[in-house]
Simulated scan of single mutants.
Amino acid sequence: MDQETFPGWVARAAGATLEQLGPATLDDLDTAVRVRYSSINYKDALALHGRPGVLRRHPLIAGIDLTGEVLKSRHPRWKAGDAVTLNGAGLGEDLHGGLAGLAAVNGDDLVLVPAQLGPLRAAAIGTAGFTAALSLLALERHGLAPETGPILVTGAGGGVGSVAVALLAAARYEVIAATGRPAELSSQLTALGAAQVLDRASVLSSGKPLGKQRWAGVLDAVGGPVLAGALAGLQHSGVATTCGLAGGAEYPGTVLPFILRGVSLLGIDSVRTPPLRREAAWQRLAQLLDPALLDSVTRVVPLSDAKDAAASLLAGTGTGRTVVDVASA
């Protein structure tokens, strides 16, 4: 391994290029992983196309996910040959990431690939599905249950949203899926388990701080005006999680839903997740996700096509999950 070269997407301020790299490029961390798969998330799309807000150092191997086999490790939990996956934990932001043939990572952050999923499906879940599972766990810790009432999922056609719809439906929640492309995605979202599909425009705030009480919980993957509208439609004592900002980082709402209806808003950070919570999220994913449904929203591209595949996310036309077959450069 010490003399081996491998391909990887190296991101700089102006964008990313596919280059041949050596092990000396990698960070000095306790576990070396042969990367088999990565995936394309919104952060990856930003980094690959030179958009600001993701990279903490330059140059940096992109990719906030990886799935593969341990090559060697100084960490007591791991041995050569273990099938592992990792989401966030600084990959592709301040540590070299998963869009390359080799990676060096912190063993504390690794999770064993669930046997019922396997490496390809674990990669398809990726940070998007991991974030959806963290959101579900947060909602439930706050007291939400299927009998409480319907759950709104915003950005339902995207990576987080599509896995969230499937997870919530499998957990017996009534799921209301909101998307900006209802005509195009209604059949897909219904197949994933959505009881109702809404046009995103019907969720947007009408300008009034409070609207009709329509849902018991919200799993928001959009932010901006969509989040404000979703909160305005929460039932009394309802709870929402938020994890994305594709709709904007600004919150154009008021405090009235919080102080007149007693609603709660929980932020979801998938990057610095403690190990025990990582394990819990992956256990829930393995327990609930139907592999066939996951396959239905997954496409696989070679490493060389990663940058092109990311463009659809930036254009707002991406849907489901895109796995990068790193071994197929």
Rank of each mutant, 00 (worst) to 15 (best):
T25K: 07
L18C: 11
D30V: 12
L21V: 04
A32N: 02
P7G: 08
R34N: 13
A62Q: 07
R12K: 08
V35W: 15
L55A: 13
F6S: 00
A11T: 05
A13S: 05
D30H: 03
L18R: 09
Y42F: 15
G22V: 06
D30G: 09
Q20Y: 00
P23A: 15
R51S: 01
L21D: 11
P59N: 10
G8R: 14
D30I: 08
A16F: 11
A11C: 12
V35F: 10
A16H: 11
D28Y: 02
P23H: 14
A13Q: 11
P59W: 03
Q3L: 08
V54P: 09
I40S: 09
G8Y: 14
V33T: 08
S39M: 06
T5E: 10
T25A: 14
Q20W: 08
A45V: 05
L21C: 13
A14D: 13
L29N: 07
G22D: 12
P7T: 02
Y42I: 10
D30N: 03
T25L: 14
A62K: 06
A62T: 02
A47V: 02
G63K: 08
V10S: 04
I61Y: 07
R34A: 15
Q20E: 12
G63H: 05
S39L: 04
R51V: 03
A62L: 09
T31D: 12
S39P: 09
E19G: 04
A24E: 14
L46A: 03
S38V: 12
T17L: 02
Q3N: 11
I61R: 10
A47C: 04
R12Q: 14
Y37S: 15
V33E: 12
Q3P: 00
D44V: 08
T25F: 12
H58R: 07
A45N: 04
P52G: 09
L29W: 14
V35Q: 08
E4W: 04
P23C: 15
A62W: 03
R56D: 11
R56H: 13
G50Q: 06
A11Q: 03
D27P: 12
F6C: 00
L46I: 03
E4T: 13
G22M: 03
R51A: 01
P59H: 09
I64K: 02
S39F: 08
D44T: 07
G15Q: 04
D30R: 01
L18T: 10
D28P: 10
R56C: 10
H49K: 01
G8I: 02
R56A: 15
R12D: 06
Y42A: 10
S38N: 00
L18D: 05
V33D: 13
Q3Y: 09
L26R: 02
W9T: 06
H58C: 00
P52L: 13
A14N: 07
P52N: 11
A24W: 01
A11I: 11
W9D: 00
A24T: 07
R57C: 01
D28F: 10
V10W: 05
T5D: 06
T17R: 12
R34T: 08
A11R: 00
V33H: 11
G8D: 13
A16R: 04
S39I: 07
A32L: 15
Y42D: 02
